[in-house]
Nucleic acid binder design. Sequence first.
DNA 1: CGGCGGCTTGATCGGTCTCAAGTACGGTGG
DNA 2: CCACCGTACTTGAGACCGATCAAGCCGCCG
Lengths: 228, 228
Amino acid sequence: MPICPLVGRSPSALALCPPVRARSKTNDLTGSIELAGGAMSFLRNCEIYGEGESADYLYKVVSGAVRTCRFLGDGRRHIGAFYLPGDIFGLEANDEHQLSAEAISDSTIVVAKRSALITLAACESDIVRQLWTSTAQELERVQHHMLLLVKSAQERVASFLMEMAERLPMTEAMELPMSRQDIADYLGLTIETVSRSLTRLQTRAAIALPTSRRIVVRNRAALSRLNA
Amino acid sequence: MPICPLVGRSPSALALCPPVRARSKTNDLTGSIELAGGAMSFLRNCEIYGEGESADYLYKVVSGAVRTCRFLGDGRRHIGAFYLPGDIFGLEANDEHQLSAEAISDSTIVVAKRSALITLAACESDIVRQLWTSTAQELERVQHHMLLLVKSAQERVASFLMEMAERLPMTEAMELPMSRQDIADYLGLTIETVSRSLTRLQTRAAIALPTSRRIVVRNRAALSRLNA
DNA sequence: CGGCGGCTTGATCGGTCTCAAGTACGGTGG
DNA sequence: CCACCGTACTTGAGACCGATCAAGCCGCCG
């Protein structure tokens, strides 16, 4: 894991980017978070928060991409989620983060103090409802991810591609922000197996790989057929 | 899958058991649910709700045990969770159930109309907060389960045993309500692998198996050492 | 040009699945 | 009481998928 010459490690650090109003309407909290917080920049591979730290803040991706991850005892890494622009992360059941969060690429993140939102919620009761909604969405995402993990390697990679095809801005091809290692840890596979699955999908003409991070979905039906 | 000579399939069916006040304090919703709903009985292997049905109700286990599950395209079954007395289930991100729920053993379940709770929430704003808390707990549980699924078979079974040891009433030994097939589908393994893992734990003196459903944890440290 | 990191490809190993018996237990009927 | 049965569980042998180990390849940057 590379060293992080990071810009802001703690949420009190200098905000390098002005808040950007997102066009995404996926989450109602969006506005509230931006009201309550400031924007920060994180360099590639920098930690945004650590596993076990107290979950005092909520985060929203403005640009870039974020992974949440956790190391198992034997050094293996598990990635719980990828967050793309518009996504909210940092929601926890307890006051402690279960996984740590890291920037996958240079990213701008809006940070809001959780307690500030709760205070806001006292006046506008809708905020609690919105926090609940966001948590429920996260729950659904994790449930879906759980289903992934009981499938075969080929199925997992196909599912991953379909997920990304929905979430990434797509013009013909999509540009993956994450490395093969990230994908492997997300899917519970090795990089070799991920790579082989991708080339196999390519030879079957389901996808094309102009470059290793750029993927064209040629046959969406073939992909979904692999989803078990 | 056996046929279900079930007592109540829809929440409007006759409640055979009077509401029982639970001593569990694991969830604040507990009281509200019981206020808003009535108790029902479900026989072993009966469906409580189906995948895709609208999620109009919340449920609380009074006695017995419940599994939520989903069938994959090729017939494999995935179990998302086991719910024991005191647990709340049926919370969803959307208005549709992602998985179906079935009674593992004859069970008594308290059912509350979701809309009734939301109405209640209009007066007592705490209810929304409690719904949020329950959802967050569920999220944490699923995250934990996700971590399970990337471990080895031996680790998964050991983790499962430790989870059950915490949740089941224990006096020396614990009595599992679920079958080996249930465990296998919960852990993403086959019954044979589950069985082999258990006997291996027994030969290593980590557990004892007086009967197949009754398990004594002999060496908790040995189990947790296997958790990776 | 050389070197390095990220990715692909190949050969082998091992863990889990699959298929197939064998065993323990509970219930039912004689 | 036992004989019988069906279900749930265990155990064994072999196949297969994905991990591991080990080269090679590619793009990028100095």
